[in-house]
Simulated assay, not measured.
Amino acid sequence: MEIEISSCKHLMYVSEIQQEMYDSAQRRGTGIAKRSIEYLTQKISDGNAVVATENGEWVGFCYIETWSHGQFVANSGLIVSPNFRNKGVATLIKNKVFQLSRNKYPDAKIFGLTTGLAVMKINSDLGYKPVIYSELTQDEEFWNGCKNCVNYEILIKKERKNCLCTAMLFVPQNNKVNEAVNQSENEFNHKISQEEHKYTIQNSPETNNNKKETDEKESHLSV
């Protein structure tokens, strides 16, 4: 499996990514708006996204958004293809897009809004902390993006102070010596290589055959 910073070569997957983002939100009954093809195309072309692929097949995706003139960054639209869920892909993608965000915007606060427990766990491992909504960007354009969410009325009734999503925030100054920035590229790539190797072993045909009988009832991870 390859997890790469996006480029024009990944545009071939944009329609599949867009549809799965929308379908996943509909299945959960919450969440993200359907992003336009043009919007996602721009993110991919500008290198502001991470794309995971395997043998020419799209595996997962996440992109960067900036708010309040670069003071805040969000890693948005995290999605994993149904064929590759429950295999640790979401964690690998979040690690990669987090590194990209820190490299591009080292002084920015990185935040997220999510109802997914799995995503909360990943964010927590990266150094995010739960916060109240007032600590997030107050950029109107960001909050306008919630209008297509089924829970938007709840957000408005709560005067944008809270909703069903949990707010989480990574503040560079609160993390010792900005460890995510100072970690060398080689060290990070070594970590990713180890995780990818583990992914390959765990999902090899031999391993999957051995696990098949005991794993038939495994539930899908929604991201």
Rank of each mutant, 00 (worst) to 15 (best):
M1L: 09
I3A: 05
I3P: 01
I3V: 15
I5L: 01
S7D: 15
S7Q: 09
M12V: 15
Y13L: 09
Y13F: 15
V14A: 03
E16H: 06
Q18A: 11
Q19W: 12
Q19P: 09
S24A: 14
S24Y: 09
A25C: 10
A25V: 05
R27D: 15
R27Y: 12
R27C: 14
R28H: 14
G29L: 04
G29S: 08
G29W: 03
G31A: 08
I32R: 02
K34W: 06
R35A: 01
Y39H: 07
I44Q: 00
S45Y: 05
S45K: 07
G47I: 00
N48A: 05
V50M: 03
V50G: 03
V50R: 06
V51P: 02
V51K: 05
V51M: 05
E54G: 01
E54Y: 08
N55R: 07
N55H: 11
W58Q: 04
G60E: 01
G60C: 08
C62V: 02
Y63K: 01
E65D: 08
T66P: 02
T66G: 01
H69K: 11
G70H: 04
Q71H: 08
F72C: 03
N75L: 00
N75I: 02
N75W: 03
S76E: 06
G77M: 03
L78W: 00
L78K: 01
I79S: 04
V80R: 00
V80L: 01
S81F: 08
S81T: 10
N83G: 10
F84V: 03
R85T: 10
K87L: 09
K87P: 02
V89H: 01
V89S: 01
T91C: 05
I93Q: 00
I93V: 15
I93K: 02
N95M: 10
V97A: 02
Q99H: 09
L100N: 01
Y105I: 05
Y105D: 05
P106W: 04
A108L: 04
A108S: 12
K109R: 14
I110M: 06
T115D: 07
L117I: 10
M120Y: 02
D125Y: 06
L126M: 08
L126V: 07
Y128L: 15
K129G: 04
I132G: 10
I132A: 11
Y133M: 08
T137E: 06
Q138K: 13
Q138S: 13
D139Y: 05
N144Y: 13
N148A: 12
C149Q: 05
I154L: 12
I156N: 11
R160N: 12
N162A: 13
C163P: 02
T166H: 01
V171Q: 09
V171C: 12
P172A: 09
N174P: 03
N175W: 06
K176S: 13
K176E: 15
V177R: 10
V177I: 13
N178I: 08
E179Y: 13
N182I: 11
Q183L: 12
N186Q: 14
N189I: 01
I192W: 04
K198P: 06
Y199V: 04
Q202D: 15
E206C: 07
T207R: 07
T207Q: 09
K211Q: 15
K211V: 13
D215W: 09
E216D: 10
S219I: 15
S219G: 13
H220P: 12
H220T: 13
S222V: 15
